[in-house]
Deep mutational scan, measured.
Amino acid sequence: EETYEVDGEEQLKKVEKMLRDRNLDVEVEIHNGKFVIRAK
């Protein structure tokens, strides 16, 4: 499992696309105004 923490939606979209391109399962949560992306 990998976890990424990003600020802002633009970064979120980039990271999310990169992970989905690797066929990973992606979950996004918001913690303290930051996006936390978990990939399995």
Rank of each mutant, 00 (worst) to 15 (best):
E1N: 10
E1P: 11
E1K: 09
E1G: 11
E1I: 14
E1F: 14
E1Y: 14
E1D: 11
E2C: 15
E2G: 07
E2K: 08
E2F: 14
E2M: 12
E2H: 11
E2D: 06
E2V: 12
E2P: 06
E2Y: 13
E2R: 10
T3D: 03
T3E: 10
T3L: 13
T3M: 13
T3P: 04
T3N: 06
T3V: 15
T3R: 11
T3S: 09
T3W: 15
T3F: 13
Y4E: 03
Y4W: 13
Y4T: 01
Y4N: 01
Y4V: 04
Y4F: 08
Y4K: 01
Y4R: 02
Y4Q: 02
Y4D: 03
Y4I: 06
Y4H: 04
Y4A: 03
Y4S: 01
Y4M: 04
E5S: 08
E5N: 06
E5H: 10
E5A: 07
E5L: 12
E5F: 13
E5Y: 14
E5M: 11
E5K: 08
E5I: 15
E5Q: 07
V6D: 03
V6N: 03
V6Q: 02
V6I: 10
V6S: 01
V6Y: 04
V6H: 03
V6T: 05
V6P: 02
V6W: 05
D7E: 13
D7N: 08
D7W: 15
D7V: 13
D7A: 09
G8T: 15
G8P: 03
G8A: 06
G8S: 15
G8I: 06
G8R: 06
G8L: 10
G8N: 15
G8E: 07
G8K: 05
G8Q: 06
E9K: 07
E9A: 08
E9G: 06
E9V: 12
E9P: 11
E9D: 07
E10T: 06
E10F: 08
E10A: 09
E10Y: 08
E10N: 05
E10Q: 07
E10S: 07
E10V: 08
E10D: 11
E10K: 05
E10C: 15
Q11D: 12
Q11W: 12
Q11L: 12
Q11N: 10
L12D: 01
L12N: 02
L12T: 00
L12F: 09
L12R: 10
L12H: 03
L12V: 06
L12A: 14
L12G: 03
L12C: 15
K13P: 01
K13Y: 12
K13E: 08
K13F: 11
K13A: 12
K13M: 11
K13I: 10
K13R: 13
K13N: 06
K14A: 13
K14V: 11
K14N: 07
K14E: 11
K14T: 10
K14H: 09
K14P: 02
K14W: 13
K14Y: 12
V15M: 11
V15N: 01
V15K: 03
V15G: 00
V15W: 10
V15P: 01
V15H: 02
V15D: 01
V15E: 01
V15S: 00
V15A: 04
E16S: 13
E16R: 13
E16W: 15
E16T: 15
E16K: 13
E16Y: 15
E16A: 14
K17Y: 01
K17N: 06
K17A: 11
K17P: 00
K17S: 08
K17T: 06
K17Q: 11
K17F: 03
K17I: 07
K17L: 07
M18I: 07
M18T: 04
M18E: 05
M18C: 15
M18S: 05
M18V: 03
M18R: 04
M18Q: 05
M18W: 15
M18G: 01
M18L: 09
M18D: 00
L19M: 05
L19F: 12
L19D: 01
L19S: 01
L19W: 04
L19N: 01
L19K: 00
L19P: 00
L19V: 02
L19T: 00
L19Q: 00
L19I: 05
R20H: 06
R20P: 01
R20V: 03
R20K: 09
R20S: 05
R20F: 08
R20E: 03
R20W: 07
R20M: 08
R20Q: 05
R20G: 03
D21V: 07
D21T: 06
D21N: 09
D21K: 10
D21G: 09
D21Y: 09
D21L: 12
R22F: 06
R22C: 15
R22A: 05
R22N: 05
R22K: 07
R22Q: 06
R22G: 03
R22W: 09
N23H: 12
N23R: 09
N23C: 15
N23Y: 10
N23M: 08
N23W: 11
N23V: 03
N23L: 09
N23T: 03
L24M: 14
L24T: 02
L24Y: 12
L24I: 08
L24R: 04
L24E: 02
L24H: 05
L24W: 11
D25L: 14
D25F: 14
D25K: 12
D25N: 11
D25V: 14
D25M: 13
V26S: 03
V26L: 10
V26Q: 01
V26E: 02
V26Y: 15
V26H: 04
V26R: 01
V26P: 05
E27D: 08
E27R: 12
E27S: 13
E27V: 14
E27L: 12
E27F: 13
E27Q: 12
E27T: 14
E27K: 10
V28F: 05
V28R: 00
V28A: 02
V28P: 00
V28K: 00
V28M: 04
V28C: 15
V28W: 07
V28N: 00
E29Q: 09
E29G: 05
E29C: 15
E29W: 14
E29R: 11
E29K: 08
E29N: 07
E29L: 12
I30T: 07
I30Y: 14
I30S: 09
I30V: 11
I30K: 07
I30D: 07
I30F: 14
I30W: 14
I30P: 04
I30Q: 09
I30E: 10
I30M: 10
H31D: 05
H31R: 14
H31I: 15
H31T: 09
H31F: 12
H31L: 13
H31V: 15
H31P: 02
H31G: 05
N32Q: 05
N32S: 03
N32D: 10
N32W: 02
N32A: 04
N32Y: 05
N32P: 02
N32K: 06
G33D: 04
G33N: 06
G33S: 01
G33T: 00
G33E: 00
G33M: 02
G33C: 14
G33I: 02
K34N: 04
K34T: 05
K34M: 10
K34S: 07
K34F: 09
K34E: 02
K34Y: 12
K34I: 10
K34H: 10
K34D: 02
K34V: 09
F35A: 02
F35M: 08
F35T: 04
F35S: 02
F35I: 10
F35C: 09
F35K: 00
F35D: 00
F35Q: 01
F35Y: 12
F35R: 03
F35V: 06
V36H: 06
V36S: 02
V36A: 02
V36Q: 04
V36T: 06
V36C: 15
V36I: 14
V36F: 12
I37L: 07
I37C: 11
I37T: 02
I37M: 01
I37K: 01
I37V: 12
I37W: 03
I37Q: 03
I37F: 04
R38E: 00
R38P: 00
R38C: 10
R38K: 10
R38V: 05
R38I: 05
R38A: 00
R38G: 01
R38S: 04
R38L: 04
R38D: 00
R38M: 04
A39Q: 03
A39K: 03
A39R: 04
A39S: 07
A39N: 03
A39E: 00
A39H: 04
A39L: 11
A39V: 15
A39G: 08
K40N: 06
K40F: 12
K40I: 11
K40H: 10
K40W: 14
K40Q: 06
